[in-house]
Structures are given as C-alpha cells and as structure tokens.
Amino acid sequence: MTETILILGGSLAGLHVAHAILKKRSKNVKVIMVSKNSHFYMNLASVRAIVPGQIKDDELFTPIETALSRYPRESWDLIIGTAAHADFENKTVEIVVHDDSTTRTISYDQLVLATGSRSADPSMPWKASGSYKDAVASVHKTAEQVQAAQHIVVAGAGGTGIEVAGELGYEYGKTKNIVLLCSGDKLANGHGIATDAANELKKLNVAIKYGARVQKTQPTAQGKTDVVLSDGETITTDLYLPTIGLIPNTEYIPTPYCNSDPNSRTVLVDDYLRVRGAEDVWACGDIVGKPRAGFLITQAQAKTVAKNIEAALGGAKPSVHKGMPVDVFVCSVGRSRGVGRMNNSIKFPSLMVWAIKGRTLGLNYVEKYIGGSIA
C-alpha cells in the first residue's frame, strides 16, 4: 500500500525531509510537496545579494523540481500553492493552487509542517514572502535602491541586521552613510558576540545608534523616508531596511495546536517534534521557533522529523529530538570578517567564522539540498 507523505514547505526543512524519505523509500510512498515558491531560495545569502553584482539569481534560486526529479516520477508530486486550512482530525489539508486559484483537498498518512516564516515587512528579501517572481523582484529592487542611496538606515541589530549592515559597510562604508539602529544597549540582544560585532562594524564605518526603537516610518515629499524613533527623534534617510521580526507561517493551523502569542504564533510540538494533540503530524524549522529560528537548528529538526516518519512507516517508536549539542551563533560582518560564539562564552576567531559562513553565506549548501546529500 502506498503511503502519502504531505510536506508543506519547499525550503530548508521541507526539502531536507523529502530527500531523506525518498532516498530510503522511493517505492510504496508518495511524497507530495506544497511550496508557494517554485524555487529553492538560499535566503541566508540575501544579505549579500542586495549589494549589486555580488550574487547571481541562479546562485540564489534553483527549481525545486530539479531536486525531486532524481527520484522515480511516480513517487513524488510538487504543487505550487499555499496551505489554507489543515484538518488534523480528518487528515486533510486544503491547498490553494497558484496557477488557477483553485482549492484542492489532499489527504495524507503523514504530514510535515515546514512552512517557515516571513519578514514582518514582506517587501524585504530576507525571506521569500511570496512566489519565485516576487522573491526575485524583491532582491532586484532592494539592490537597485541600495545602489542609488547615499544614506541607508538598517533597523534591527539581531543577526540579520548585523549581517546586512556589515555587507553594506564593506562595500560602501567609505562612500555612503550606513546607520544601524539597535533598540537596546548592545547588539544581538546582548549575546556574547555583541562587543566584537560592534567593533567589526565600526571598522567598516557603520554608525551604530543604541536605544533606537523605531516607532513608525513615513515617506517624505522628496522621496526619502522619515524614521521616527520612540524618543521622538526623526532620522531622514534615502533607504530604510528593516530586519525586525519574523512571523511564523502558521495561519492555516487550527488555534489549539499553536501557542497564544499573537506576535509569534508558533506550533506546539512534543519531544519528538510531533504536533501536540495531533496524530501523524510533525513540524520543523522556523514554525517551531525553539530554541530559536536558525539554519543549524532547522537542519537538526528536519533530520529528527525524517527519522521519526521513517519509524512511523515501519511501525516503530519515534526518537526524542536531541537538538544541537552546543549553542552556536555566528554572523558574517562583510565579505572578509565575522563574529561568533559557542554557548555564549567561547568566541570563534573572525577567520573561522568567515570560513564556515561569511565566505559563501550558505551558497555552498545549495548543491547539497538540490542533489540530496544534505539528508
């Protein structure tokens, strides 16, 4: 009997799980992947892609079908669409198909929730908030705006904000005004990299403004943007790049299966990454949100989910998700430097961070996700 594995999301987590299942069970399973984006987007490199001439589109985007087509055609299906409603009791999901806006109801035996998250400002390219065309357009538009601007404000001093400011500082620190707004008194919420990151950014002529919480923004008659801070100060800039806030894509999931935080409605899972209260439903990646959203965390969760689905198909018990053995946090700062730490105490040398992240910003993983060696 053919088992249907429905995977919602075609990014890091979803593609990892699909490869793991299809490599072991190309027969007697049907993997159906639903993705709003027809292309796999290595969004980790988006912070550098906004600098004109640094990264080509075909380095950032690869058709998901290229990844799946290495398996027997009858064992998989790809639907470009969006999950509208999940019914865990009846084991069905309603999908809005993008090509014709029709709604399909798909039944499953095992369900993987890997729909990730989006930027609070959907116009920003840090995440793929829409279709492939939308994502490409967002990268191109932002790069054009960066090239034209003489004054740029980056709001949000977490990992993405530090990396965006670092890329801009590396390329334009001597010719443009780059300002990074930090709502607190330290970068990265006071993590162990805060001081080192600030020092690296200063070397790139990035100005850091602490205690600067954005209250609102508004366009000016001259085509600029007024950034109004909570203390009443207004900064007028040519280009405003917010990196604040990730919104989990969980709107299709019924309320009882998510937490009650309106600002971060993540899905509730048990120790096996199984959705609490649901049968044969698993979740991984940004929609889980713990210990936080992150590339290495997503990889580890996807590995556990794939292993537990394999166990379920074989009638075995699931394994407890162990997570990362250590907590690692690294940020590139421009194209030649980086900062990082392990367990908030052991610092990594800048050259090491450059080698493991800053050199490629994840582009070296694209072939692994497309070719399947990631799983």
Rank of each mutant, 00 (worst) to 15 (best):
T82I: 04
E59Y: 05
I106N: 14
N28S: 08
H98I: 13
L273G: 12
G190C: 01
I253M: 08
N177P: 00
E251Q: 09
S230A: 15
A302F: 14
N259K: 07
P325K: 06
G372K: 13
V267H: 01
Y170F: 08
V164E: 03
T225D: 01
P318C: 04
V17L: 05
F88E: 01
C331I: 08
V326D: 09
V136R: 14
H16G: 04
T220N: 07
T105D: 13
P349G: 04
V17W: 06
V328W: 07
L313Q: 15
S183D: 01
T243Y: 13
T298V: 04
E163Y: 11
G285D: 03
K24P: 01
R118W: 06
L241C: 04
I356W: 04
A137G: 07
G294D: 05
G81N: 12
G294E: 08
G130H: 09
P325C: 07
W126P: 03
M324Y: 07
H151G: 03
S46N: 03
P125H: 15
I244Q: 07
N364K: 13
A188Y: 11
T4I: 12
A155R: 10
K141N: 02
Y132G: 01
I374A: 14
V31S: 03
I55D: 03
K290F: 03
N249A: 09
A212S: 01
L113D: 10
A49H: 12
Q222G: 02
D327A: 04
G116K: 15
G169C: 02
R48F: 00
R274M: 07
A84F: 12
K224S: 00
A149Q: 03
L187D: 00
A114V: 08
T236K: 05
V154L: 01
L241S: 15
S38I: 09
L187V: 06
N259D: 14
P125C: 15
